[in-house]
Design a protein around this nucleic acid. Sequence first.
DNA 1: CCCTTTGACCATCACTGACATTTACCATTA
DNA 2: TAATGGTAAATGTCAGTGATGGTCAAAGGG
Lengths: 160, 160
Amino acid sequence: MYSLCDTIERYIMRLIESSPDQVVTIQRGKLASEFDCAPSQINYVLATRFSVFRGFIVESRRGGSGYVRIRKIPIDRIEPIVAYLEEYERQLKESDVEDLLSWLERENFITHRESELMKAAMIKALEKVDDLGIPPGAERNQLRSRILREMLLQILSWGK
Amino acid sequence: MYSLCDTIERYIMRLIESSPDQVVTIQRGKLASEFDCAPSQINYVLATRFSVFRGFIVESRRGGSGYVRIRKIPIDRIEPIVAYLEEYERQLKESDVEDLLSWLERENFITHRESELMKAAMIKALEKVDDLGIPPGAERNQLRSRILREMLLQILSWGK
DNA sequence: CCCTTTGACCATCACTGACATTTACCATTA
DNA sequence: TAATGGTAAATGTCAGTGATGGTCAAAGGG
């Protein structure tokens, strides 16, 4: 039932986890050959599974001896995220929330239950609030962002 | 005389019962083909027979390799929560939230941390949202209710 | 009348291929 | 030698296609 996308994600994830520095360098073409898929498929996996909101940084270089380097961002502190949220407020989409929560969960800042609880408040609850005068778009994203912010501050107060 | 609806219900039910984790993952299209019916018929069965109120949680993913996962949840002493849910449209004041949360915590439905998270989302986050066009009073209380409702549904899915 | 069933239309996700861009390396030449 | 330029080797981007599942109103049936 796993898609190719999922398989490649797990493959890269294992490489990172088994690396001392939480970094892995690959070659897009090689990896694509191994999985017998289009090279751009690798970009798709990187974009959807290894985004900043999920806690990863991807750098690359083109041309001869080019590479793609995927690095896991260490988070010992949540403050930077809170700060970032303030600027990003109007654009915080639902998928961003999901990605961020999966990151916090992976890093053991929150439990799975807590993650689901937060998702309920920020995604499900805000799905149909037009009748309360909160249309989809920037405004709803802002509200979502405020909720997330307060919850993060709460988490912050617990430490790790 | 059994309707198609009933037949599909029993089919899914058997799959769940014969699964160790009380979970089953299906593909809507495939199942619809097997029973030679419209795909949306599956949604109807899920909505009417496998709702939260009947003790099931349904998750799904669209697109390639999409799926529908149906999970049976342990139900124990959920009646009070359901009762609360049924009048979720009521105007929830901040103090109501506090009362409910302390009750949920006392009854071990949620942990202290979870309680604090919920409080952050329903009280702190909604303190200063005037600039988003959500003035204090009825409107804000309604929004609070929506958030609580979704979080309660989530808690419900955990059982106790 | 209420419950079932369907179909049309929508939303989302995975995957690909054509085309663009960047880089290393090497041959040619003033 | 230094500058030029061409070629091969990499990666990036983006729009398009197919495969799913979701929603809702309307028709059907007991």
